[in-house]
Design a protein around this nucleic acid. Sequence first.
DNA 1: TTTAGTTGTATAGAGCAATAGACAAATATT
DNA 2: AATATTTGTCTATTGCTCTATACAACTAAA
Lengths: 250, 250
Amino acid sequence: MIDAGLKSPVTRKSGVALWRQIADQMRQAIGTGVLGADGRLPPEIALSERFGVNRHTVRSAIAALVQEGVLRAEQGRGTFVESRKRLSYPISARTRFSTGLRDQTRDRRSTLLADMVEPASSRVAEALKLTAGADVIRLETLSEADGRPVSRATSWFEAQRFAGFAKAYAKTSSITASFKQFGIDDYFRHSTLVSARHADAADLADLKLSPGAIVLVAVAINVDPEGKPIQFAETRFAADRVELTVSTEA
Amino acid sequence: MIDAGLKSPVTRKSGVALWRQIADQMRQAIGTGVLGADGRLPPEIALSERFGVNRHTVRSAIAALVQEGVLRAEQGRGTFVESRKRLSYPISARTRFSTGLRDQTRDRRSTLLADMVEPASSRVAEALKLTAGADVIRLETLSEADGRPVSRATSWFEAQRFAGFAKAYAKTSSITASFKQFGIDDYFRHSTLVSARHADAADLADLKLSPGAIVLVAVAINVDPEGKPIQFAETRFAADRVELTVSTEA
DNA sequence: TTTAGTTGTATAGAGCAATAGACAAATATT
DNA sequence: AATATTTGTCTATTGCTCTATACAACTAAA
């Protein structure tokens, strides 16, 4: 057995149910290969001893992970890991969604959920270096890999310069390809701001997360070769499924 | 009043108590200035209506945030914001802790919690390009800003090349200064891997977090001017107090 | 076939979480 | 001084969480 006497403490009276704490820890451990590396979970009794709780509490945690599709339980045989590895999403000067995950997934897909034209908020205007209230195009997109939602992004573009961008994106499902239709053959990631928070109701629905899950939030500005901002985007990643790689080539 | 009819939904039967969900949302909203931008919180009744819960549930959430030092309640007057803004921690080719936060805080401090020499795990050996089992120095450090814990790091260095590094660090409280004593006047951030997870028991204690809190985990490799790895580090940031800025200068 | 090991189901009790209503205490406003 | 607003305390009730115990159902191995 691989799992030695790892004490994995849980906190009582914290406002977070023990079964959920355990589910979160197990999901994390499975994602990093610490637990169930051989595809099989230790028996419920062993887990309950490790976490210092009743067997039924562990069962609740397992039930939640089965519901999520992380585990699969078979009566009489055991509990098995259904899906494991975490995707690594690169952030660099040349960050692009599709290319970044190319080697790690069989199937990738981006969906345009909604698009609209709206006046720029001060936050958006500042990022795109526009005057506040100027028209901007907003794109709501969802990216999936191997059938599982990976990220949910909201992007803004200058409406004047990129009129019809949504149509181009709907056709190509690619930001890079869409930019090409506007004469931008190359672009660069100027800055990225990374934070983390609990998933809100919208995140839970869009990314098919379970309550209490964590999202990594990346707020980014892309610029054209002249250094002019062309895209401002806030992307929410499911922290259980993705990690961000920042390569700072000197 | 600034806070309009923002619906802020909470999820029932999720294994996370409503008061904790609300506390998390409020902490987040306060950190980004969405809530209590004028330093004052809406009355409990108004909050309970916004979140769709009983007043007592909101009171539990407020009590938790008072305990954390985020809020201060005064009978008859109202509830007030005690500390607000989030630090922005830059990640670039020249990432250094002290310089990064210089402009944002009055007081910074790094503490050496522990140091030891141990054989390199496969993970550490791979990062530092050593043979597995080679001796490495491990440093456990805590960084605080304005009296509040900001990050908790575990660093590894090649023991042969950096014998006595812990002593140097204990004296200078600075990685940069310690490297100088070993003839390294400059070094670079090679790569950074960012992920997020729930804080474990150790994080809660070290960073003085409340259960259910989130930590941003940055796993980084620093290299000397020749490109040879000199430091491998895993840093845990309190996600409520810090965000990471990735500047990708082309 | 028997046995051991594992997951699934059932029941009961103790403690926490959330709701509800009422009122006290302190402050600010009229 | 009187009133309204706001936080603090108390009691009671309901439902969820966790524990404990027992046994059923299924699988694999002796």
